[in-house]
Nucleic acid binder design. Sequence first.
DNA 1: TTCTGAGTGCTTTTT
DNA 2: GCACTCAGAA
Length: 787
Amino acid sequence: MQHLVKGLNEQQLAAATHINGPLMIVAGAGSGKTKVLTTRIAYLMANGIDAFNILALTFTNKAAHEMKERIGKMLGSNEARNLYVGTFHSVFARILRAEAHQLGYPNSFTIYDSDDARSVIKTVVNELNLDDKHYKPNIVNSRISALKNALIGPADYLNNRAAQEEDTRANRPAIGQIYQSYAARCFKNGAMDFDDLLLKMHELLKNFPPVLHKYQHKFKYIMIDEYQDTNPVQYEITKLLAAANENICVVGDDAQSIYSFRGATIENILQFQKDYEDVKVVKLEQNYRSTKSILHVANHVIKNNTGQIAKDLWTDNAGGEKIKLVRTMTDNEEGKFVADTIKEQKLRNHYTNKDFAILYRTNSQSRAFEESLRRMGIAYKIFGGLSFYQRKEVKDFIAYLRVIANTRDEEALKRIINYPVRGIGKTTIERAVIVANEQNITLWEVFSAAGAYGFKASTLESITNFVTMIRYFQTMLTDKNASDVAVQVGKHTGLVKELFADKSVEGLARYENVQELMNSIKEWTESPDSEDGEVNDKSLGAYLQQITLLTDADNDKEDSDVVKMMTIHGAKGLEFPVVFVGGVEESIFPSGMSINTREELEEERRLFYVAVTRAKTKLWLSFANSRYRFGNLVQNEPSRFLDEMPEDYIDRSYAGGGARNQGGFSNMGTAFERTQRGFGGEAAQAERRYGPPPAKKTQAPAAGTNKPSYMPPPKQAPVVSHTPSGDFVPSDTSNLQAGQQVEHQKFGFGQVTKMEGSAHNPIATVVFKQNGEKKIMLNYAKLRIVE
DNA sequence: TTCTGAGTGCTTTTT
DNA sequence: GCACTCAGAA
């Protein structure tokens, strides 16, 4: 057992060997938190505690995976496989899947991602005849999310004055109504959104005592990572689960709380000591990650925040280099600087690509970096942003799987009912939706009994074929695994064929993505165990349950030698030898959305703290004089956080100001004055270093000069309007022949020169006297046969 | 029913 | 600058 705790310092040892009773670990950045957590779990198991009785909740699937792997290595056995390790969302999804019937959900319930949720909200808002310009899906969605995270369910809302008044004050009095309908619709669809996974879990434990006892008994030891980022629902759930045994261990750092926008509250970690008696508190204050310079800067900046848990983070590591500040003219030059520097550092210090990380506040900043890296031929990977599973073609394919597993899933059904095109268009779907709402049945039930609702013959045939196909797939559910079903779907829906037919560059990429998806399903089916210890359930339902909760960061292949790019939020918990933080400018970092209250600004500052403490040895902070945002050029001042950094630890020689600027930016006058002066000297310096700024794009070059090398395609001649004859009555055109004279309501008189198309979709070519040759689809256009 | 082109509004961070 | 919506044409 001694070998497990070898190399731990005094505090780490105290935390790792604490077995029974509540424990709070305050772990500063880089203080070996993961090491302590994994050691503690291994230690518990070495002391005879069954892996099946240990629950560890992490913030990302990646962290969960890593933890399990490390414990496995420490113990040298397969026992770690039986641990319940996962994110709040994935662990609860799994429990809910087992207990769904208690709450009236099918156990193959769908998990809606934010896209699905927004889409349902849009439908609901329209059905309630509300203005979707005012009740924007995004806003409504985040409001509902906030309510759920604050433990206010749809029914609770009706009795919650404060919440109602808040919405009335925000001039959105119908939020309550939308919330009710949204929740009802999700339930009808057999679907839970991300927040439901928490809210329903809470409901389950709260309202079903036997279920609560079952899981209290199962999870005798509970560990929660990143406790500072838990929200009230998560707090209540863990409190319920831990109530019986009180063997709960939370790990957190109030200085790294950066998820309040998701309902997280720092209160939870501050409250912990009051919730349980005899809480053992351990502070991990020695940083093993960063140089003295980096740590000192981080500590110095975070001191500007009020109300923290007192701690004193220190390190034995080398002093290290000063933090380098970089000013560039534009965002593109910022990208170029970073790419150049990576190249230089690789040569000079023998770094490889994977030693570098580029961090930024917003996903949209990734573009400039991406372009420069590509130009320099440096391999990179962007984490976050649009995940693989959110790509249209991937979602389309998954939508089939979702419908097969859960026909109540209306969002998925609407997505695929006419994809690939099978003649079930908007009108048909709208009619079906109306029927479904009137009869209070699901959309699928309307389609599967389509004969009863008077669709026209050709439409009915399409619907019946579709229903038959889905039913065929469903016959495979019980005895075939997820991959087998997916292969059949690919074959019989014509989806893969359609993508294959598109030979454009994007089309090829889409085809490859779907192939990739099918491969990953196969891989998942064949892998021995999955994220949170699911035992060999390789059914389609099990596959779908975890897929929505996966993010890009989880597919990270550690061994690939690439520069990593991600938001600072995405970088939490990670470390890199060399870190670049881009866009350290006012209105970006801190975000312009978060400078209105002290709380918001302090969270931005914590985020800055997180960014700085990701670096082990070298750190560059860059900002640009101007950058494109919203499609137009904006000027930002350097971030206020730069002014908060201790001067002695900063190297401004890259910032264009050189020695003249040693005093920091605050002595340069107000932002206004600075803009007025136009940065004269600094700009010139930067110009020497990075070359002249790109020439301003000239607007609409004067005629004669600078002629475009091509002429834009000629605009179609405007239609010469035609007033239809007074006796205009559309003729039966089913026997129309070439040579006949016809009249068109808009184009006037003309002669049919050619007939083509199929019998179902005849197309006539008509040469009009006024408007020239047009192709007319006889199914839609109205023609009067003159002779 | 389906496709196209012009017009509009928007971005903070994520499970 | 892009993604989404809507109107109009075939």
